[in-house]
Nucleic acid binder design. Structure first.
Lengths: 253, 253
DNA sequence: TATGGTTGTCTATATCAATATACAAATTAG
DNA sequence: CTAATTTGTATATTGATATAGACAACCATA
């Protein structure tokens, strides 16, 4: 939208102009309008294109420089440091570590916190438990090459999966942890996708700039015979991650 | 996040506090924290919960009232008008009109514009055409019960599908239009999901409030023998639509 | 009817966002 | 070296955003 198409922003929207422009530059980089190390148009040109003051463009660029997306050099120009979006596959066999194979060199899950609590309506329905049953909640962060790429909350039946928090902390893997409870394979039953602004917790955990957007998936994993075992809500930074539905996982029933 | 969990917003983020609060209230309604016609907590309570002034909460509520999500009544309270999110299935057999069956009573696609243009790199790759081949671009809007629920740009091989724009305008359906070209069935080969702020064009076409978020899907449809026929980018208003991957469409290969 | 709780309106002030203008500092091209 | 281009810095002004406090209008109900 920054290359050929009409660049367009909206005033008095509750979202500042500099953030809208930063979003659009990020989007333009993501869809390939600018190659790695390519120079952005000069600030004056961008200002004219968006119909704003040069300082407003500078605020947008400053945010992206701060975020490690751009590099500005006095007298020369502003250049793309190309943080390509990770393409994250979603489907029946969605797993964290297998999903990003080949795109990054190092990846793992960090357990941030765990707690026992009564199941809310959503969680109870998802796990097919009685309302108020105790469930185990795990807060985790997925990382790839040192960058946080996901932030998830997962719920398990506390009775059946007592101690899975320790297993997660030890193995850093859901798949490995479930094996300890006799579950050698599982499938994703359903996934619901939405998007919203990152809240304060997401900002910290995903290392985002305030105002960023997160993709949200709400999913239920089941055993091979259809028994629900895990209910989870995951947040992905939209500026660093895209979700991909592969042809195979979209096969007919 | 407005019911039990800690409500959290971020200052000097480029996104105003009233918009962040409006987003969170909308999210809370979407995930079922408030039933239809339920009363929101009083403005003073919300203000304390978010740690802001009551007037800031009022700005957020005013935006949602303007948007038709809430109804405020002096002396009584503020109530949810419950615009439930449409749950839009994504999978191998994604179609517009079949997708929303049962959730809405009336739905159709409106052709906004069409043009012939040389294929960009993305489009050429998606349709497996030579770079620079002429393609037909269709701009469409999907509507359900009078509300816009999607905004899509679709590209077809101009040579093979000459006149599909007229067919779309006449039938209001991609499936019906493709039948005229001898294609009685097709599958979705791939879908990539991302999210961003709505741009000015989206605001107009999807009847959104400035600052809204759109879910973006980029997809390729193919014939049953794998020949690509349609490349498309669709935008969905995140506040009115969620995307659902059903168990069947997530079956193993 | 009297009281407490709720939304609606008003005024004032402080801070952030955006504009306007000017000039300095660094780089590149001639 | 000079000129043109580009990013960096500074100052001043305007409008939107957010806070603070006070009070009016309306509703439910004890």
């Amino acid at each position: 939208m920054i290359g050929q198409q009409a660049a367009s922003i909206e005033r008095r929207s509750g979202v500042s102009l500099w953030r809208q422009i930063a979003d659009q530059i990020l989007h333009a980089i993501a869809i390939g309008d600018f190659a790695e190390n390519a120079a952005l148009p000069p600030e004056m040109v961008l200002a004219e294109r968006y119909g704003v003051n040069r300082h407003t463009v500078r605020s947008a660029i400053a945010a992206l420089v701060q975020d490690g997306v751009l590099r500005a050099e006095q007298g020369r120009g502003t250049f793309v440091l190309s943080r390509k979006r990770l393409s994250y596959p979603i489907g029946a066999r969605t797993r964290f570590s297998t999903g990003l194979q080949g795109q990054t060199s190092e990846r793992h899950i960090v357990l941030l916190a765990s707690s026992v609590e009564p199941a809310s309506r959503r969680v109870a329905e998802g796990l097919d438990l009685a309302r108020g049953s105790t469930v185990l909640r795990l807060e985790t962060r997925g990382e790839a090459d040192g960058h946080p790429v996901s932030r998830a909350t997962a719920w398990f039946d506390a009775q059946r999966f007592a101690g899975i928090d320790a297993a997660m902390a030890e193995t850093g893997s859901v798949t490995a942890s479930l094996k300890r409870f006799g579950i050698n394979d599982y499938l994703r039953q359903s996934t619901v996708l939405s998007a919203r602004h990152a809240d304060a917790a997401d900002l910290v955990d995903l290392d985002l700039q305030p105002g960023a957007i997160v993709l949200v998936t709400i999913a239920v994993n089941v055993t091979l015979d259809g028994q629900p075992i895990q209910f989870s809500e995951s947040r992905f930074p939209a500026e660093r991650v895209e979700l991909r539905l592969s042809a195979n996982d979209q096969a007919m029933p």
